[in-house]
Design a protein around this nucleic acid. Structure first.
Lengths: 244, 244
DNA sequence: AGGACACTTTGATACAGATCAACCTCGATG
DNA sequence: CATCGAGGTTGATCTGTATCAAAGTGTCCT
């Protein structure tokens, strides 16, 4: 089965408590959220929402990785976002979703029915404020990605992508030296994210490997051997844009 | 002189009153805004904010067109947004701006000092709610643009851009048949927006002209002769994504 | 264990759009 | 009103990445 419901976890013990849409809520407000939330899990590869679907729920990613994409009539596709834990799915104030959301790995979501959630936005400023912050952060990220898509070379795209994975996975806990990182996407999905073909992705990864920047432990796991060289290859200036 | 201050206009008579960040505010709330706002004008071509500048003000575009762009070390640039009247500039909760903002035409802004504005966000839910809506709308637009940058051909990019101009300028007032539209950007700026070179932009515009889709009345003004063909050329499906 | 299938790599070739270069257009300026 | 310069067009050529094609790798299933 692709979708399943999952045991209720208390908000206060939730791993994304301090980064998700609920981050600013106090205990009372959490109680209210607690009452309308429900966990759902999706298997790797299964669709979560399809473009044009009615948007019954909005949700936070609790764990796993989902992709947000658009498809053209003739089948060309472009990924427009990578949803990692604490990222938000859905659009209060809109009935349909405009994107395809797919589970890239096994994913657990914390879902809220949209209507009650919209009412909460009206009555709970902490939620609107946090959602505003999240939206503004994603907007910045989307704009960085526009620079990547519009102007970067294939090698720069790959390097930027890897560098982003390093940064975001380091934040998720285990800091320090960054050995053995997970690549949560196939070559084809990476290509969709970067506006390339899967062959080009493969060639550029091989090239980074040959240049001693990366090593692969298996297809889905790699180590960065030379972070400075990786940074250099992104084309960004030293402390490139993203304030962390 | 490049920058000038402009006579105060009452919010209640402001042309963007119902679309800008103040859209949801009631009369009392407008009073508060009125007290901290100030109009500033910029000549076509002059910079409004430079990447890394301290973000003293946030602002709404009252009239004119500004561009939002990123520049790489080696000079490659990508425009990441086109700011038309009612669009919002700045990021509450951040000290520096990450982008270059430039006046493409003469521009008037309605500026609020950032600190007092941030306090207003805390105390005036209508502003946080509206800013959330604006951010989410821009996020959708940014994601549409990611599809364009990552996957569309040069012709599709140009057609999509023109179609967006038609749509947005029709909303700004004079509806009906859409004769004589303004092209607020140079070929080079269009190229920066679409991830192309100026030569390619020029060739594609010529090609659309030869195909009877457009005619130019002068370099900065054109008419769409065949909207259906334009739509077709965008590569989007009939009612492509953007609602209304 | 063997086969099938999904994913990946590698190679050969094609092409859209970049780059380099020359010329055109037109409004501003002395 | 001649000149100048920014912006625009058009042409020739080059190149990075797509496309087409084939073969390699690992994992799941029977």
């Amino acid at each position: 089965m692709n979708v399943s419901f999952t045991a209720h976890i208390k908000c206060s013990e939730c791993p994304i408590r301090h980064r998700a849409v609920c981050a600013r809520c106090d205990d009372d407000e959490l109680q209210t959220l607690e009452a309308i939330k429900i966990y759902r899990s999706f298997e790797a590869g299964s669709p979560i929402l399809w473009r044009g679907d009615e948007l019954k729920y909005v949700a936070s990613v609790v764990n796993g990785v989902a992709t947000l994409g658009k498809t053209m009539e003739d089948g060309r596709t472009q990924m427009v976002g990578l949803l990692l834990p604490s990222d938000f799915i859905g659009r209060p104030g809109r009935n349909e979703i405009e994107f395809d959301v797919v589970a890239a790995t096994d994913v657990t979501l914390c879902c809220f029915e949209r209507r009650p959630f919209e009412r909460l936005i009206e009555t709970t400023p902490h939620i609107a404020q946090r959602l505003m912050e999240i939206a503004l952060d994603e907007l910045d990220a989307a704009r960085d990605w526009m620079l990547l898509l519009g102007r970067k070379t294939a090698r720069e795209k790959i390097a930027t992508f890897i560098e982003m994975l390093v940064r975001r996975q380091n934040i998720q806990g285990l800091d320090g030296a960054s050995p053995d990182l997970a690549l949560p996407l196939t070559r084809e999905e990476v290509a969709n994210y970067l506006g390339l073909t899967l062959e080009t992705v493969s060639r550029q990864l091989t090239s980074l490997k040959n240049d001693g920047v990366l090593t692969f432990t298996d297809r889905r796991h790699f180590e960065v051997k030379d972070i400075a060289a990786l940074q250099e290859a992104t084309g960004d200036d030293a402390d490139g844009g993203v304030i962390f």
